[in-house]
């Protein structure tokens, strides 16, 4: 209720008139709790305010049942909710405003841990699946450092490992002061949602402190840096890094990916995120299995399609393996 006050549009318009419009620059406004209707005004192509906003719908889906605990929880995100959140922004801003696309940032848990599966078996596969699902949408994609390596949550087990003011203040308030939950539960919540999950240092290589520093890092490194690091991925053409590179190249070359409209398929499907994009007579079909099991799905099965991208080596048609994600064009 403190957000989106009555004069916000005036302030943003003044900012644009007096400053932004004088330069060829981009602007993106972080807007917790903003609704698509608001964002159409802020980012409207003729509104003269901002180019795009960071909306929070898809990163605030699994709040605690007890509202006093707010964001602190360890529940998985429900796929139908996630699809609804992302799809409504895709639809609302098409042709009217512009979306920013992100899974995570310095204030969020790591994407592969929160929306995918960070076990060694599925980490890379699900990181690529998530990347495909987001990068084929309409909007400007944001990659948070380390996401392109499939970096995971920190999995800290001791409160002393945390540095983040929000995490520490919340622990104090919730566990010590108001006694809303116990230490062990709150530690699970922090391991799921703390901002420090995204802030552990970048993992460059398998040397001491992952090549981040020759000194003592301000925040402990993730213990998995010997397995997950940039040097390793740069030598593996099948790595998450090169998969992101491919997605970026595809976007640069395709107006269909940049400007195409958006239609979600089977919104109530609890296992698969599928959607289509259309632009100047061409169709892009994106299908992602969000589960660790095999599923069978069929979309436009009679149409001849070209496989544009996949996170597996071969195409089994209607069968989708764990976290398999495919993009067709036709």
């Amino acid at each position: 209720m403190v957000a989106d006050g009555a004069k916000l549009n005036d302030y943003l318009r003044e900012m644009n008139d007096k400053v932004l419009s004088k330069y060829d620059v981009m602007s993106v406004g972080e807007m917790p709790s903003s609704k698509p209707e608001d964002a159409v005004q802020y980012t409207g192509l003729d509104a003269g305010e901002l180019n795009m906003v960071f909306q929070f719908d898809h990163v605030t889906l699994a709040f605690n049942d007890d509202p006093r605990l707010g964001k602190w929880n360890d529940k998985p995100v429900n796929l139908v909710d996630l699809k609804r959140a992302l799809s409504r922004w895709q639809l609302a801003l098409d042709g009217k405003g512009w979306n920013s696309l992100y899974w995570n940032n310095h204030d969020r848990a790591r994407a592969v841990s929160r929306f995918g599966n960070d076990s060694p078996e599925y980490r890379e596969r699900s990181a690529k699946m998530l990347a495909t699902t987001l990068h084929m949408m309409q909007g400007t994609p944001y990659i948070y450092q380390g996401e392109e390596l499939g970096m995971t949550n920190a999995h800290f087990t001791d409160l002393k490992q945390y540095q983040d003011i929000e995490s520490l203040e919340s622990y104090h308030q919730i566990v010590e002061k108001e006694k809303l939950t116990d230490h062990a539960t709150m530690m699970r919540y922090l391991a799921t949602e703390s901002r420090d999950n995204a802030r552990t240092p970048m993992q460059w290589d398998d040397s001491v402190n992952a090549g981040f520093t020759a000194g003592t890092p301000w925040l402990e490194l993730n213990k998995n840096y010997r397995e997950i690091n940039a040097a390793k991925e740069l030598q593996d053409e099948d790595s998450v890094f090169y998969f992101y590179k491919k997605l970026i190249d595809l976007r640069h070359k395709s107006d269909l990916i940049v400007y195409g409209d958006y239609r979600e398929l089977d919104p109530e499907d609890e296992e698969v995120f599928a959607y289509k994009r259309h632009y100047e007579g061409k169709t892009l079909l994106v299908i992602s299995n969000f589960t660790a099991k095999d599923v069978t799905r069929s979309y436009d099965s009679e149409t001849k399609k070209t496989l544009l991208l996949s996170n597996y080596d071969d195409d089994l048609g209607t069968k989708f393996r764990p976290y398999e994600s495919k993009v067709y064009v036709y």
């Binding site: 981009m26 990659i143 976007r251």
Partner: peptide, 18 residues
Amino acid sequence: KWWQKAVVYQVYPRSFQD
């Protein structure tokens, strides 16, 4: 607009490279 075709990489300097 140029930013509609762009991809952004977010750097959190504190944790990127010392």
